[in-house]
Amino acid sequence: MSTSPSPSAEQPARTRRGQAKAARRAELLEAAARLMAERGFAAVTLEDIGRAVGVSGPAMYRHFSSKIDLLDQMLVDISQRLHDGGAEVVDGAGDPEQTLRDLIRFHIDVLVTKPDLIAVQDRDLSSLTPAANHQVRSLQRRYVEQWVDVLLAVDAGSGGSLSREEARVRVHATFGLLNSSPRLPAFGEAELRTVLGAMAWSALLSGR
């Protein structure tokens, strides 16, 4: 008589395995971001990353086919996180000014909690495969346009006449300001959030 496990018994085991694999993948990506931010993409190997979390070199290939595959996944992940988080802020929108403040707060939260990822994205985007580069840039463009739409709504609400082109320039310039934060001198997290938030608001609305 067959004693194979029922589907209901198999499912929790699969779920646990999937959760464990996802947790290990996240751990590896975090270690990779830290090492690459410190040394640069070219100076880090898969074996270095594995050692940082106690994973053997061969075991790394269960998660990533190569170092470039790891970089692809890392930067697509952070770009998707920014895009999806921005969309969530906009979808839960109240008035435009509050939505813009919430977008700034969300972006700064990512910066201060994932500074290594931001540093790697800023420096090593050109090392992505063409397909991943296209995906990252597409997500980035759509994330920018989320901000542009909200900034234009804020401007229109105060009787302004900001063009979409200028709004886009302001958003890109603000990202440049914010994304430089991993290179800033050491500063308390709460104070950094306050300073960056005030500067971003001023940059977006300067001269209005």
Rank of each mutant, 00 (worst) to 15 (best):
A9S: 14
E10G: 02
P12V: 11
A13Y: 13
A13H: 09
R14P: 01
Q19L: 15
K21M: 12
A23S: 15
L28I: 13
L35K: 05
M36P: 08
M36H: 04
A42Q: 11
D48E: 12
D48V: 10
V53I: 04
G54H: 03
G54P: 06
A59E: 14
M60E: 07
H63P: 03
H63N: 12
F64P: 02
F64K: 05
S65A: 15
K67C: 06
K67W: 08
D69G: 02
D72R: 05
V76G: 09
D84Y: 09
D84T: 14
V89T: 05
G92K: 05
A93K: 01
D95S: 07
P96R: 01
I104Y: 04
I108E: 02
I108A: 03
L111Y: 03
V112D: 01
T113D: 13
K114M: 12
P115M: 00
A119R: 07
D122H: 14
L125Q: 08
L125E: 05
S126W: 08
P130G: 03
P130T: 03
A131W: 01
A132N: 00
Q140F: 13
R142T: 08
V144R: 01
D155L: 01
D155R: 01
A156N: 14
S158L: 05
S161A: 15
E165I: 03
R168S: 07
R170C: 01
A173G: 09
N179T: 14
P182L: 00
P182C: 06
R183D: 08
P185F: 04
E189C: 11
A190C: 04
E191G: 15
T194Y: 07
T194W: 06
A198I: 07
A198R: 14
A198Y: 05
S202W: 06
A203F: 13
S206H: 14
